[in-house]
Design a protein around this nucleic acid. Sequence first.
DNA 1: ATCTCAAATGAGAACGATTGTCAAAATCCT
DNA 2: AGGATTTTGACAATCGTTCTCATTTGAGAT
Lengths: 138, 138
Amino acid sequence: MTGVQERATSEGTRRPTRQRAAVAAVLADTDEFRSAQELHALLREGGDKVGLATVYRNLQAMAADGEIDMLRTDEGEAVYRACSTGHHHHLVCRVCGRTVEVEGPTVEAWATRVSAEHGFTEVRHTLEIFGTCATCSR
Amino acid sequence: MTGVQERATSEGTRRPTRQRAAVAAVLADTDEFRSAQELHALLREGGDKVGLATVYRNLQAMAADGEIDMLRTDEGEAVYRACSTGHHHHLVCRVCGRTVEVEGPTVEAWATRVSAEHGFTEVRHTLEIFGTCATCSR
DNA sequence: ATCTCAAATGAGAACGATTGTCAAAATCCT
DNA sequence: AGGATTTTGACAATCGTTCTCATTTGAGAT
Ligand SMILES: [Zn+2]
Ligand SMILES: [Zn+2]
Ligand SMILES: [Zn+2]
Ligand SMILES: [Zn+2]
């Protein structure tokens, strides 16, 4: 689950603010992964005044709390998205950005087994699939 | 295979240079993933004078040609390593950096199936497992 | 409502990895 | 050797992200 989500650490210690709500709201409105800067721009368009640094801070906090998912593009840029709860992975269309959340006992088991075989503990994994969705490939 | 390796595109069109050889050599000497900057530093220590930009260019070219593997750390930094050929994944110790190459028909099949089920084509995937190796966990 | 204090914010500077520029050097081909 | 083409290197420029710190805000006590 590394990189894609984190365990809910110190959760309740967070203060509700207008900015945080705005970030959560814009995330709830989009179903594609978005970068911090893109989200910041969307907020401005929507009339919400939120500092860029604040957007970064909130996204990171939310991701750390497992409220949203974060993954890195091929270029290394962090992108965020509101996701269903629980451990899962993503099937992302590299053309339009459409994302499907996928889950698989198969891979989870495989990852666990392989790690154990090599004596690794406290393992987390990242697994993302990129391709062309049906719509875009037509 | 996205992010971890790329198809061998235009290969033979590359000119052999001292710098390229030096980069390849230092990579062959290390068995852990290293960033471009680290490799550049290692080259200097070894007495090889190679420009930083050149190190970046060569690493990217080699990765694009599938000669070496590249993956991104949690912080988004690109790290490279000379790897065995063929499609595989990595089990990386987040403490000492020790890396084990793992392979699995299981995940490959799963990824293919899941992609197909959702109508995705031209799929590539990234899968890295991070944990604590036996040595470091003792 | 007022007071207090720690947490959160914002504006902008600072950072660090990566990329771009362009003239000089190396390689290839004849 | 001579000219065309690629590669290199020093350094400027990008760009995403983080840091700084003065100011604002939320939550709890009074
Ligand atoms: Zn698409
Ligand atoms: Zn998983
Ligand atoms: Zn280790
Ligand atoms: Zn694979």
